[in-house]
């Protein structure tokens, strides 16, 4: 997704003369093209994330739009107060771009993972988190982020293509409504790839309705989702993020507030480091039950 991100940013740089890109000393073998297009509007702020975000708010206050780019955990956790006070309180168009959300950096270890980022950022005032699942909706998210011109976080993950039959919506992706659905699946961001892989040969795939969510917070339950829940009565939320403050928390709150009748509510989520060992992204997904095989097995239990 990083390569496609860079290409899209190059196009944005040509469209918006007020757009500045600040990196926290990262982007080797990915952002060289962006440098070429942006010239002095591409800034390496050094290994100094708090200053980068504070400066970005200062630049944005003069009428600029600013991307702050780093590995996801570095641009979320260390500079949280700058994001809250300088960016969000002042509604500044500063876009934190975090590469490798979730367990994306795999064997690099826990310092490089971001499995609480949405919980941390999405409650902040005026903030919109974009969690694109595919290359196609990443482009859509970036365009929406620039059009909205407010505080934003873009969590980048794997770069795969959108499955057939799905279209972009204002909450993510959805297929044509399925009146036969007996299970409503909501997947946050790129882990949706595992859901589609699990369903590919699944005997009950025709009775499962999948919604890909790529924006948080979720202030209201999209009507397509609530209609699906009304039909199926079962909800399975899948996210490479802890349950607290993530999609499962939001959906649970909204289904209760909307008095939706739910037979079964289940959450598959990032489990952290349950036995204190480390590995690839796929390894951590497996430990959390977010892998294709477990998702297929969990879905099977609904039938």
């Amino acid at each position: 997704m990083r390569k496609h991100f860079s290409e899209h940013i190059e196009r944005k740089a040509k469209e918006h003369s007020d757009f500045v890109f600040v990196t926290g000393d990262l982007g080797y073998n990915a952002l060289e093209g962006v440098i070429g297009v942006m010239g002095d509007r591409f800034i390496n702020g050094g290994v100094a994330e708090q200053n980068i975000v504070g400066m970005a708010a200062g630049m944005a206050s003069t009428g600029m739009q600013v991307i702050c780019y780093s590995i996801a955990p570095f641009i979320v956790y260390r500079c949280l107060e700058q994001v809250r006070n300088d960016v969000c309180f002042h509604k500044q168009p500063v876009y934190m771009v975090g590469n490798g959300g979730g367990y994306g950096y795999g064997i690099m270890g826990s310092s490089h993972h971001a499995i609480e980022d949405i919980a941390v950022l999405s409650p902040l005032p005026n903030m919109m988190c974009y969690i694109p699942a595919f290359i196609d909706d990443m482009h859509h998210c970036i365009d929406a982020m620039f059009a909205r011109r407010g505080p934003a976080y873009l969590r980048l993950g794997l770069g795969k293509n959108m499955p057939d039959g799905y279209g972009l919506t204002d909450f993510g992706l959805a297929a044509k409504a399925n009146p036969e659905a007996r299970l409503t699946v909501l997947a946050l961001g790129p882990v949706a790839n595992n859901v589609f892989a699990a369903l590919k040969e699944h005997p009950h795939r025709d009775k499962v309705e999948v919604f890909v969510i790529n924006r948080m917070p979720m202030p209201v339950l999209p009507h397509e989702v609530s209609a699906s829940i009304g039909r199926s009565g079962n909800i399975l939320v899948i996210e490479e993020h802890v349950a607290i403050g993530g999609l499962a928390s939001a959906v649970s709150l909204l289904t209760h507030e909307n008095n939706l009748l739910v037979n079964r509510f289940q959450s598959l989520r990032a489990a952290g480091y349950p036995d204190g060992t480390y590995g690839s992204q796929a390894y951590h997904q497996q430990q959390s039950g977010l892998d294709e095989q477990n998702i297929a097995a969990v879905i099977h239990h609904y039938f």
Binding site: V20, N51, G54, M55, A57, G58, A60, S61, D86, H90
Partner: peptide, 29 residues
Amino acid sequence: LKYKAIPFATGSLGHGLPLATGIAKANKL
């Protein structure tokens, strides 16, 4: 966001210099 002459709310120390540095950088650009 209350007064034009107060471009940024402060109170937690260590925020003003990065903000002012960003404004200075923008002015240079």
